[in-house]
């Protein structure tokens, strides 16, 4: 029983972080319709910056630097690669390839700059809290709070503000907006910026519990984000966050029953089964006609 609870604690922790991955991917995917693989490089780049600067300028300024880098990185991909390609009438497939190309370039530039190996954040955040034999680290305590706050903020903006209604309109029918004379570009960029900026926040949640970051660990971040989106139901921000949480939670708790070497096979098989049985996702209402 103790093990089950301990795994559940880990599951809530991983789920909280995956919820942010899901939200990040969903915001960018819904507003740009791009499989932003380069998000992986943006993630690891911003995390590496946090680690490199934390010991010299302090953790909070370092996180700020990471956020700035991630925002610029995300905007750069959109403004420098996806946007221009879209204007040239490139197919989705071409944009996906370009995104993979950016990922490869990004990972290797990071490797030259920071070295290929994993770095960890050496900041003392205080010991864990032990309750009834269950060990809860500070990071595990912090992550759900941060996740709820970030997702809550995003949902508030999306559903309670004028700007949010424009974002929804953009996700729903961009052409209609353009016909109404609303410039969609700045709205899209704002979503890309926010979606990118939450990546280093998620990264720090992980780093605080002693996990490492290298230039090459970005791809899973994108895939978890993508799976969250499709699991939660496409174009639903709340769905993506919940989808991400479920992936993290189930993947951890499942280890109570299966050996960890089968964890990846389990997660992907389960995902496959769900989207085959219910392609609209757990919360989705309608199947959007594919853009590809």
């Amino acid at each position: 029983m103790n093990l089950f609870l301990q795994l559940a604690v880990n599951g809530i922790y991983a789920g909280s972080i995956f919820a942010l991955f899901g939200l990040s991917f969903a915001l960018i995917f819904a507003t740009t319709k791009v499989w932003h693989f380069a998000q992986g490089a943006v993630y690891s780049g911003s995390a590496l910056i946090v680690v490199a600067l934390a010991t010299t300028i302090g953790l909070l300024p370092a996180i700020l630097a990471g956020v700035v880098f991630a925002t610029l990185g995300g905007l750069g991909c959109q403004a420098g690669i996806y946007g221009p390609l879209r204007r040239r009438g490139a197919s989705m497939l071409v944009i996906v390839m370009a995104s993979l190309g950016v990922t490869i370039v990004g990972e290797n530039l990071l490797s030259i700059l920071f070295g290929p190996s994993q770095k960890t954040l050496l900041v003392d955040v205080g010991g864990p809290i032990i309750a009834g034999g269950i060990v809860i680290s500070r990071a595990q305590l912090l992550a759900p709070i941060i996740a709820v706050a970030v997702v809550g903020l995003a949902l508030f903006v999306l559903y309670r503000t004028d700007f949010g209604r424009k974002v929804q309109a953009l996700i729903g029918d961009e052409e209609l907006m353009q016909l109404q004379g609303i410039a969609t570009g700045p709205i899209r960029m704002a979503c890309v910026a926010f979606g990118s900026a939450i990546l280093p926040i998620a990264a720090v949640m992980l780093l605080l519990s002693g996990t490492g970051v290298s230039p090459y660990i970005g791809l899973p971040v994108v895939l978890i984000g993508a799976m969250s989106l499709f699991l939660g139901g496409i174009n639903s921000m709340l769905g993506a966050a919940i989808g991400g949480f479920l992936i993290g939670f189930v993947e951890n708790v499942a280890l109570y029953f299966i050996p960890s070497s089968w964890q990846a096979a389990f997660t992907y098989s389960l995902f496959l089964a769900i989207i085959l049985v219910r392609p609209t996702g757990l919360l989705g209402r309608r199947l959007i006609q594919s853009s590809m």
Binding site: W35, V96, L223, A226, M227, F230, I234, S261, W262, A264, A265, Y268, S269, F271, L272, I275, L276, P279, S290, S291, M292
Partner: peptide, 29 residues
């Protein structure tokens, strides 16, 4: 091909990716 009969486009990308990962796990395990 089974997923491709059920889902298309973005869904197939992700479904096939999941298959790729499951296959890799099987080779290792």
């Amino acid at each position: 091909s089974l997923p491709s009969l059920r889902v298309s486009g973005d869904y197939l990308v992700l479904a096939s990716f999941a298959i790729q990962e499951v296959f890799y796990s099987l080779l290792v395990n």
